Amino acid sequence: MRIFAATFLLVSAVFTCSFAQEKTTSGNPIFKGWYADPESAIFNKQYWVYPTFSAPYKEQVFLDAFSSEDLITWTKHPHVLDTSGVKWAKKAMWAPGIVEKENKYYLFFGANDIQNDKELGGIGVSVSNHPGGPYKDLIGKPLVGSFHNGAQPIDQFIFKDTDGQYYMIYGGWSHCNIVKLSKDFKSLVPFKDGQTYKEITPDKYVEGPYMFVRKGKYYFMWSEGGWTGPDYSVAYAMSDSPLGPFKRIGKILKQDPAIATGAGHHSIIHNAKKDLWYIVYHRRPLTETDGNHRETCIDVMSFDENGLIKPVIITKEGVKGQRLD
């Protein structure tokens, strides 16, 4: 009888331990390593995140990707793109932007951190037959390789409008441009007024633009503050057009001194079938002072009855597991 009781207790303990260890939320960060500027997407019923490898510029010579079927367990896809396949890129490979078109995947990226028009670098574009790569340079040179309207050519976001037109929204140094992409993504197309680079910079914009449409309204989001400091944050505006005008409404993502600092440079995941919204962003643990020590996190984003974005509550738990039907 004692042997039976002991065996029962042992089995119960193992079962309880296994059950307790089974994750039901993503946790934050969602994967290990220093990663920032996360671009997120849904491809083939999987969640994907494409971040910057957060390290000194000369070490930023590749991009990794991560995929998940449930927001909890993430698979790493190392070096989906690196400078060995982009002859003009030497360092500072930053802030990917991803889009799928006609069964091909286009990964846009910034490289070389150019400081003026005499330097080689800017925004490039690569292509693959699979979201996990490998990606190859599409045009062999930067798509945008110089300054326009004061905007450093970095932090590009690819936006598909409701009419099927693809735009690229980009810019650092507190200036933001919107440009029209050609159908093959190999060049830019002028607007009807002859302009190629239209500035849409809202108040307090710094970098990291993002845009989405909800109920006929264009939501334009960006990062404010300094990326190495605790004041890094995300604000937004709304308009009836992707060209604006965009009047700043306010911040929706910022640090919580009890959890993490420097919460910013984000992207959005929208589960359209269940109308669930998530914000994917980077932040700095309270234990870290190195500017590059940033980690990728996810939390719930929601709206009020007027369509305004509610302030995001940053958490250690992250979000509940959610599969895509």
Rank of each mutant, 00 (worst) to 15 (best):
W88Y: 09
K104N: 05
K101P: 00
H77T: 02
K87E: 14
K90Q: 15
K90M: 14
S84H: 15
G85H: 07
K104H: 13
N116C: 03
D82K: 04
G110F: 08
Q115Y: 01
D82W: 12
Y105D: 06
K87P: 15
Q115P: 00
V86K: 06
V99S: 07
W88F: 03
E102C: 02
A95V: 09
F109W: 13
K104G: 01
L81P: 02
F109H: 10
G110W: 11
F109T: 10
I98H: 09
Y105C: 00
G110E: 11
D113E: 10
V99H: 09
T83W: 09
N116S: 10
W94R: 13
Y106T: 06
A89T: 04
P78Q: 11
G110Q: 12
H77D: 08
G110A: 15
W88E: 12
K90Y: 13
T83P: 08
N112H: 02
L107C: 04
P96L: 02
W94Y: 13
N103W: 06
K104M: 05
K90W: 14
P78S: 15
S84I: 14
K101F: 04
P96W: 05
K90D: 15
D113H: 11
H79G: 11
V86S: 13
N116I: 03
L107M: 13
K76Q: 12
L107F: 13
A111W: 01
G110P: 01
T83G: 04
Y106H: 07
T75D: 05
V99L: 12
Q115L: 02
W94N: 12
L107K: 02
V99P: 00
G85S: 05
L81A: 02
G110I: 11
W88D: 11
V80R: 08
M93C: 13
M93H: 13
W88P: 08
W88L: 09
A111N: 06
Y106I: 06
I114S: 00
T83N: 11
T83E: 11
V99M: 13
E100A: 11
A89D: 06
P78F: 14
L81M: 12
E100W: 08
K90L: 15
K101W: 12
I114P: 00
H77I: 06
P78A: 07
L107G: 01
F109P: 00
V99F: 07
A92G: 11
V86L: 08
Y106W: 06
V86Y: 10
M93S: 15
E102M: 02
M93E: 10
M93T: 15
Y106G: 01
A92E: 00
V80M: 07
K101M: 05
K91D: 00
K76P: 07
D113I: 05
K90R: 15
I114N: 01
P78L: 10
K91Q: 06
K87F: 13
T75P: 03
H79L: 08
I114A: 00
G97S: 14
